[in-house]
Computed example of a mutant assay.
Amino acid sequence: MRIRATVAAVTGALALSAFAVPAAQAADAGSAYRSDAARTVSHSASGKTAFTATTADDDLGVTFSNFKIAAAIKVGTTNHVSTTVTYTMTHGADYVLGSDDFANGPFLYKGSSSDTADNMLFGDAPADCTATSATTASCKGLIDVYPGDDELLNSDAGTWSAGALALQYSTGDGSVQDGLGKTNVQRYSKLTVNAAPEPVKKGKTVTVTGKLSRANWEDHAYHGYTGQSVKLQYRAKSSSTYTTLKTVKTDSTGNLKTTTTATADGYYRFSFAGTTTTPSVSAAGDYVDVQ
């Protein structure tokens, strides 16, 4: 699996020695939690003993339910992105909520299961949990994404599955549960528009140009999104509602160009409905004075 380089590099004796630090220190270190969470899932896939995934009647006695995550996570080229996840954690008496020795949190994986995931995303810190009974807790955690650190390839855009994990620092025990939800991790999109000439005589032609682009996670720049259907929309000066005039497609570099007839003062914009890999976006309206 591909995970952030600072996590993936921790292997062998170094990975085992990480669990020898005092539990309080481990719990206090947010960056350490990300590494520990990654090892919890990777060890569950390999069947090793340190932080091995187990079932509902494992040593930790932890399961997760009522998992809620945003339908989409929009990720640009460099900026850190966080999305909030909530869920219910059910645990046995051996899991002491609030103890520095225990932690839990959500994760995302690209693929059919975390055992065979192509890529995974974690939070920087454990989830915050509030007890709702002796054996249940309401939890809130984050998924943190760093596209500038090469966490993602363009092929990673699309549907990801969600899971949650629990771990105990002092024993190396861990629980991993897949299949709790789904979200789309999307390449952030941009859309521009320019309508000309300004002003224009009524009944004359207005030429509308623009460009649809999206984040490239591999070179950290924005490039044209080609062959996409985009709507040209118009809003009269006195109205608050846009109506669709026609649909046009982006060219080989993501550019748009079309014409329409000037009827009255108003705003022109392009609007893109989005895809699984790329979020919807609408350009800010460009005002044209019709004389």
Rank of each mutant, 00 (worst) to 15 (best):
A15H: 08
S17F: 03
F19Q: 13
V21G: 10
A32K: 08
R34E: 14
A38Q: 04
R39Y: 10
R39D: 07
S42V: 11
H43Q: 08
G47N: 05
K48W: 09
A56M: 11
G61F: 14
F64K: 13
S65A: 15
A70T: 05
A70D: 14
A71S: 15
K74P: 02
K74C: 06
T78M: 08
N79D: 14
H80Y: 14
V85P: 00
H91L: 02
H91A: 02
G92F: 07
A93P: 12
V96Q: 13
F107W: 14
K110D: 02
S112I: 02
D115M: 10
L121T: 09
F122T: 09
T132E: 03
S138N: 06
L142P: 09
D144L: 08
D150R: 08
S155V: 11
S155W: 04
D156C: 11
A157V: 00
D173P: 03
Q177N: 03
L180T: 02
G181D: 10
N184L: 14
N184M: 04
Q186P: 03
Q186V: 00
S189A: 14
S189Q: 03
K190T: 15
V193N: 06
A195H: 11
A196S: 15
P199A: 11
T205L: 07
T205A: 05
T209S: 14
K211Q: 13
S213H: 05
R214D: 14
A215D: 14
N216R: 00
W217P: 02
Y225T: 13
G227F: 11
S229K: 07
V230R: 06
K231R: 08
Q233E: 15
Q233T: 11
Y234K: 08
K237I: 13
K237A: 15
S239R: 00
Y242Q: 01
Y242K: 01
T247P: 09
V248C: 04
S252C: 03
N255E: 13
L256W: 12
T259L: 00
Y267I: 06
Y268Q: 04
Y268P: 05
F272G: 06
A273Q: 02
T276W: 00
T278P: 00
A284R: 12
Q291D: 10
